[in-house]
């Protein structure tokens, strides 16, 4: 099969008297290879053209691979991305994998294959299937959430959340160091979380544990105690629907309520800003509004 040609040489087998057949398999493989080798879909951050960013929700690389329902959204965004490019935009159209999460761990428990390994395999399959359909992703920008080079920054952002609090007066996040300064100079804020008000003197007299406990009530990522269903016999935490009449659905073992250390995001502080922002974006009305309820 001919390689990397862009000028006039058809990959098709001429049939008899110089005819040119529509041999889609050959044509498509040929051009997928050309595009890959010439990196036509690679996009730069420096361009005079106006930008346009088209994003697909990235998939969880499950073992089942694609079925016809998945590509629907991908094809639509691919069409639009290619269209915008023809219209003279510098189009960012990336793809990656949402690779951390329970399914890979379940698979590992059942089949003894480490999640990192099964994930790698599944990504390989997914990629082949996607390439088969001729998408114009800039694969140079691929991300995988389980990659250390990626989650280094997920952890970094967590630290930003941990080290910040929400200033209700200014309605924005600020470093916790500023809150500490406030406490040292003015004592507790006009609104207090779940602690007694204190003066600046009192703050300075608190030992570190007390100070940190108070600060934890303001941090945007904080640690608290959540109620969970603990089953000693099974040795696991159970979800609410795995518990029936106080015993585990599986095996009927006793289940007790336990306070387990849990981390949380203090998203409630952003409630008003999240509401207000809806007016500035184009989600469908159903998305934005008071339609049906969804469980958390």
């Amino acid at each position: 099969m001919s390689t990397g040609e862009q000028n006039g040489n058809a990959a098709n087998t001429p049939s008899g008297g110089g005819g040119i057949e529509y041999n889609f398999s050959q044509i498509e493989k040929k051009w997928q290879q050309v595009w890959r080798e010439t990196q036509v879909y690679k996009v730069s951050n420096e361009s005079d053209k106006p930008k346009y960013y088209v994003l697909d929700m990235f998939p969880y690389p499950s073992g089942a691979g694609l079925h016809v329902g998945h590509p629907l959204g991908y094809i639509a965004s691919d069409i639009y991305s290619r269209y915008k490019k023809l219209k003279g935009f510098n189009v960012l159209h990336p793809m990656g994998y949402d690779a951390f999460g329970l399914p890979a761990e379940q698979y590992a428990i059942e089949h003894g294959i480490h999640p990192a390994v099964s994930t790698e395999t599944n990504i390989g399959t997914f990629r082949k299937q996607l390439d088969n359909i001729g998408f114009c992703y800039d694969w140079d920008r691929e991300v995988r959430t389980c990659d250390t080079k990626y989650y280094k920054w997920t952890q970094w952002i967590f630290l930003q959340l941990f080290n910040s609090y929400f200033d209700r007066k200014e309605q924005k996040a600020k470093p916790v160091s500023e809150l500490k300064k406030q406490f040292m100079v003015h004592g507790s804020l006009p609104f207090t979380m779940n602690h007694d008000p204190f003066t600046a003197e009192e703050w300075k007299s608190f030992d570190e544990k007390i100070q940190q406990d108070i600060l934890m009530q303001y941090r945007l990522a904080f640690c608290g105690y959540g109620e969970v269903n603990w089953c000693e016999a099974l040795g696991t935490v159970l979800a609410n629907d795995e518990v029936v009449n106080g015993v585990s659905e599986r095996g009927g073992h006793p289940v007790v309520k336990k306070k387990l250390r849990q981390w949380y995001l203090r998203i409630t502080e952003y409630a008003d800003r999240l509401l207000e922002g809806l007016d500035r974006i184009e989600f469908s009305e159903a998305m934005k509004g008071n339609a049906d309820e969804l469980d958390w």
Binding site: A108, T145, L159, L260, Q262, W263, T268
Partner: peptide, 21 residues
């Protein structure tokens, strides 16, 4: 008042990002 509650952000599982804590 808000119906919304703070989002649970930890799992007692293996395959996820460790907390830098």
């Amino acid at each position: 008042n808000y119906k919304m509650r703070d989002a649970a952000f930890s799992r007692q599982r293996y395959w996820g990002e460790p907390f830098p804590i």
